[in-house]
């Protein structure tokens, strides 16, 4: 569905991503892990068409996205660090606004449906500024699935959610996958994300260092894999540093 191929990204003098290939397929949840500064959020932003890669391409159904961004954006649902909500508007108005931007038919019913789903129907007339972080996050999730996207891109979507909220989000993601959607999930919570995902990818210093299937994976065995993957990367990092010293 959505795919990035050979994507690199230079920010000033830092190579944030170096040649990443990542296909997202329908009916799959792909979990993206890595230490801070590995380039996870940048990769997600590139797939969200918010940032252009320095090299490489983003593909939609096998064709480059360039030139038909707005058609592709129609199919993407995004949850990022920021909520993208207006504090001065009510929950209902925020959804209504986004719905109009996406040109959703029969918007009033859809907004009501989503408000029920995220459990904020009772607060629909309250301005978002009065919401707790958890309520805002629920609304953000509602905003992301409002236009029935085919791809969900989630960057630390559990932020601020209580246990109930986390369970709710897990249900949303499972339903989305079962309906044939593709989901990319960035999370710090390894065990939970592994339990949910079908596929994992470990990113370190802008490269994919390990990827594989999440089936039959326990939290413990994945923890070993994660440590090992970063260990190997460390050694190659050192080798690179030593080589640089030789040049100097």
């Amino acid at each position: 569905m959505l795919e990035c191929k050979g994507v690199s990204r230079l920010a000033g003098h830092r190579e944030i991503l170096r040649g990443v290939d990542l296909p997202l397929e329908g009916g799959q949840v792909c979990a993206l892990f890595g230490p801070n500064g590995a380039g996870k959020s940048t990769l997600l932003k590139i797939m969200a068409l918010l940032t252009r890669p320095t090299r490489g391409v983003v593909l939609w159904d096998g064709e480059p996205v360039r030139g038909r961004e707005s058609k592709v954006r129609q199919q993407l649902g995004i949850v990022s660090h920021a909520t993208y909500l207006y504090n001065n508007l009510t929950a209902e108005e925020n959804l209504y606004f986004h719905g109009r931007l996406f040109g959703i038919p029969r918007l009033r019913e859809r907004v009501e449906e989503i408000l029920e789903k995220v459990g904020l129907y009772y607060a629909r007339r309250d301005t978002v500024g009065t919401f707790s972080r958890g309520m805002q996050q629920r609304l953000t999730i509602g905003r992301a699935i409002l236009h029935e996207p085919r791809v969900l891109l989630l960057d630390e979507p559990y932020t601020g959610l209580d246990q109930q909220g986390q369970a709710f989000l897990n249900d949303v993601i499972r339903d989305f996958r079962n309906a044939g959607g593709a989901c990319l999930l960035i999370s710090h919570d390894l065990p939970d994300a592994v339990a949910l995902a079908d596929k994992f990818i470990i990113l370190s210093e802008g490269r994919i260092v390990r990827e594989g299937s999440c089936s039959d994976m326990t939290a413990e065995s994945f923890d070993n894999i994660y440590r090992e993957a970063l260990e190997v990367d460390r050694e190659s990092g050192d080798a690179w540093a030593i080589q640089f010293r030789g040049e100097g």
Binding site: A48, L50, K71, R73, T83, L101, F102, R143
Partner: peptide
């Protein structure tokens, strides 16, 4: 606030 402009940018 809340990076709301990004919400416009991700829309089609």
């Amino acid at each position: 606030v809340n990076d709301a402009l990004q919400g416009l940018v991700i829309s089609p």
